[in-house]
Simulated scan of single mutants.
Amino acid sequence: MTNESAQSIVLGDVEIVRIVEWRGPFGPPGVLVPDAGAELWKDNEEWLAPDHWTPEADSTVMALQSWVLRSGGRTVLVDTGVGDGRERPHSPHFHHRQDGFLGRLERAGIRPEDVDVVVNTHLHADHVGWNTYDAGGEWMPAFPNAEYLVPAADDVHFGPGNAYGGGLQEEDRLVYEDSVAPVHRAGLVRLWDGSHRIDENLVLESAPGHTPGSAVLRLASGTDRAVFVGDLLHSPVQFAAPGCSSCFCVDPAGAAASRRRILERAADERELVVPAHFAGAGAAEVRRDGTGFAPVRWAAYDDPERVSR
């Protein structure tokens, strides 16, 4: 199923535009989050179904999406989706897709040349694809005026410096070569580690586990707070069981530790948690609930109460 959508919300002085590239069934919950048993999904069905899980089909529901932040007079694009025409033989959802993501951005009022910063929360295929575009058989930067912020640990892990080793698959090599190496050659990449401040409202912080360099982007403007967590969460079931990592995590235990740390702070500071792949509202505020967490309120786009709280 495809679904083109652009929605916006304002937090403090920052406008957030959500660009949905795709939304639909993704596969069995036991595959996506292997350690989250069937009872956990059933116990939380009230808020998992139907936006994140369809019990009748026993299928997760996910989205491919990017986030555009207008902050401090600049345009920041968080993650760039799958990309068109990519060789992704091990990922049927991603192989040779043709979604016209740049057109979606333009229809939301965002031209490629207007993007000042591209944030790759990590270097998996569905977060870097539109870093580049096919210019007659050569991959070129899709956002020619942007600084691409890439976690240094991921660049080492996935790049040729690691000789595509350490358990990497052939697809990892393909992803790096068509979506990361070209922006390096163009001199647009800035590698960072630990933390990196983008402006007065936005700061990147390392949150390793899903990948060695996976990161979160924190937003603090006025009294509003949000945290863009990339793939630290693939499903809201991980609110209830933060110790359960997805099947895509390079270091499941490390990802679980980062996830709990990020969710604890989000609950204490009322940060809006914005994962990369949540369908439905795409983001939620959370509270502590026993040994885990639970959603208090889902994002409400263009909701004055949400904006001014």
Rank of each mutant, 00 (worst) to 15 (best):
L40H: 12
E46D: 15
A220P: 00
H157R: 07
A135F: 11
I262R: 03
S91V: 14
L174G: 03
T121P: 10
G230L: 03
N162T: 10
A240W: 03
Y133D: 00
G161I: 04
D126K: 04
M62H: 05
W22A: 15
V189W: 02
E106A: 13
D79F: 05
A181R: 15
E205A: 11
P212R: 14
E56L: 11
G165D: 12
A266S: 14
W130A: 02
H210Q: 10
L69Y: 04
H127Q: 15
D155K: 07
E21R: 07
G222T: 09
V33A: 01
D35H: 08
R185A: 14
N162W: 05
A207D: 05
E4W: 12
A215K: 01
D84Q: 07
V175E: 03
Q169L: 12
A125H: 10
A257Q: 10
R190E: 15
S308D: 10
P50Y: 11
P236N: 01
D13L: 08
T75L: 14
R190C: 09
D13G: 15
P182H: 01
D172V: 06
Y176C: 08
Y148T: 01
G292A: 14
H96A: 12
L77A: 01
P208T: 05
A256F: 07
P144S: 06
E170A: 10
A256Q: 06
G37H: 06
F26S: 13
L77Q: 00
H127K: 14
T80G: 02
F101E: 03
L123G: 04
R197A: 14
S179F: 01
S206R: 15
V296C: 11
Q98F: 07
G27S: 11
Y133M: 03
G37N: 08
D231F: 01
M140K: 15
V274T: 08
G209Q: 07
D116P: 15
V82E: 10
A257Y: 02
H157F: 13
Q65A: 14
A63I: 01
P34K: 07
D13E: 15
A153D: 12
R74Q: 15
E4P: 02
D84S: 06
P92D: 14
P212D: 14
G254F: 05
F239Y: 13
P151E: 05
E305H: 06
S5G: 09
E46C: 06
F94P: 00
G280P: 13
A186S: 11
